[in-house]
C-alpha cells in the first residue's frame, strides 16, 4: 500500500480537526501566512501606516489666518524649522543626550563590570534583578521621586545644607548655562533625572558584552606579563566597547524623544519632545510637530549607522 492509499483509507475515520490539521500541515505556505498574516498586517497598517501619515503630515502646512491644516504638498513647514529658536531647541536636546550618554557609560561600567566578573552566581541573580526592576517599573513615578528629592525644601538641599555645602550648591545654580532658581528647575536637575531613568539601559548591554569576554583571554594577557591595568585597557575595554555603544543607543534615543522629564523639572527652555507636544496640542500645528519629529529620526538614523560600524548590533 502506498502512503496515498493509507491516508485515503484513514480519511473516513478521522475527525474534522485532524483533517484540517493535515490539510494545513501539507501546505507550509498557508500555515506561514496564517501565523504571520495578523501580526504583519497589524504592523504594516497601524505602525508603518502611521509613520507614512507622519511623513505626509510634515509636508502639509498650517494656514496662519484660519488656523486650519492645508492639505497640500509644501516644504514651507520644513523651512520653519530653521529658526534660531528651533535650532536652539535641537542643540539643547542633542547636548543633553550626549551628556547623559557619557555620564551613564561612566556610572554603569563599574557596576556592569562587577556583576559580570566578580559577583557569585547567587549575587549575580539578585543584582540582575536590581537592575531590571527599575528598568521595567513605573518610569513616571521614578521621575516623580526626583521632584521630591530635588525640590528647594527637599532632601537633597537639606543634606547639602547639613554638610555645610549650601554655598557650593548656590554657586553651581548661579552658573549661566546649566543653573536655575533651584535644582528641580534647572538643566542640572534634568540631567540627573535622565541619568537616573536611563541608567539600567546602559548597564545591561555592557554587562552582556563583558560576560562574553573569555576568561582565558584575560589569563593569557596576565601570563604574557601584562599588569591588571594593561589587561583592562587593552583586552577588556576594547571587547566591552560595543556593549557601551549598544547601551548608548538607548540612552541617546530615549533622552532625545522624552518630554516628561524636561516638562516636570525644567524651566521654560524647551526640548524637542516638548516642542513636538506643544505644536500638536495647544497650537494645533500638527504639520510643524511632524516636521520637528523628523529631526530626532534623522539624528537616530545617523547614530545607528555609526553604531553599526562600531559593532554595537552584535552586542545587543
Amino acid at each position: 500500500m502506498t502512503t496515498m492509499e493509507v491516508s485515503a483509507a484513514l480519511r473516513g475515520k478521522r475527525s474534522f480537526g485532524s483533517r484540517l490539521s493535515t490539510y494545513i500541515y501539507l501546505r507550509p505556505n498557508l500555515l506561514l501566512s496564517l501565523l504571520l498574516g495578523p501580526p504583519l498586517l497589524w504592523m504594516v497598517v497601524i505602525y508603518l501606516g502611521s509613520l507614512a501619515a507622519l511623513l505626509i503630515n510634515s509636508f502639509y502646512s498650517l494656514d496662519d489666518y484660519t488656523g486650519l491644516v492645508v492639505r497640500q504638498f509644501t516644504l514651507k513647514t520644513y523651512a520653519q524649522l530653521f529658526t534660531p529658536a528651533n535650532i536652539d531647541i535641537v542643540t539643547r536636546t542633542v547636548g543633553m543626550a550626549i551628556a547623559v550618554t557619557l555620564a551613564a557609560a561612566l556610572l554603569a561600567f563599574p557596576l556592569a563590570y562587577f556583576i559580570a566578573r566578580y559577583a557569585s552566581p547567587r549575587l549575580k541573580g539578585w543584582l540582575y534583578l536590581a537592575v531590571l526592576l527599575p528598568l521595567w517599573s513605573s518610569y513616571l513615578v521614578r521621575v516623580y521621586a526626583w521632584k521630591l528629592i530635588l525640590a528647594k525644601e527637599g532632601i537633597l538641599s537639606w543634606t547639602i545644607a547639613q554638610m555645610g555645602l549650601s554655598q557650593a550648591l548656590q554657586f553651581l545654580l548661579d552658573l549661566p548655562a546649566i543653573g536655575g532658581p533651584s535644582l528641580s528647575l534647572s538643566p542640572i536637575g534634568i540631567f540627573i533625572v535622565f541619568l537616573y531613568v536611563w541608567l539600567p539601559y546602559m548597564i545591561l548591554p555592557i554587562q552582556a558584552a563583558l560576560e562574553r569576554v573569555p576568561k582565558s583571554l584575560i589569563e593569557a594577557s596576565g601570563d604574557l606579563g601584562a599588569r591588571p591595568g594593561q589587561t583592562f585597557r587593552r583586552i577588556i575595554l576594547p571587547l566591552a566597547f560595543p556593549g557601551v555603544v549598544a547601551g548608548s543607543i538607548f540612552t541617546f534615543s530615549l533622552t532625545m524623544g522624552d518630554f516628561i522629564v524636561p516638562a516636570s523639572l525644567g524651566n521654560s527652555s524647551f526640548f524637542i519632545g516638548q516642542a513636538v507636544l506643544s505644536h500638536q496640542g495647544t497650537s494645533g500645528n500638527l504639520p510643524l510637530a511632524a516636521a520637528f519629529t523628523m529631526v530626532p529620526i534623522v539624528i537616530m538614523i545617523v547614530y545607528l549607522l555609526i553604531a553599526r560600524k562600531l559593532g554595537a548590533f552584535d552586542a545587543l
Partner: peptide, 17 residues
C-alpha cells in the same frame, strides 16, 4: 527602539488624516 514620541506623533498624524 525609536523614541516614544515618534510612535506617538505618528499615530496622532494617522488619527488626524
Amino acid at each position: 527602539a525609536l523614541p516614544g514620541i515618534v510612535t506617538g506623533i505618528a499615530l496622532r498624524s494617522a488619527i488626524s488624516i
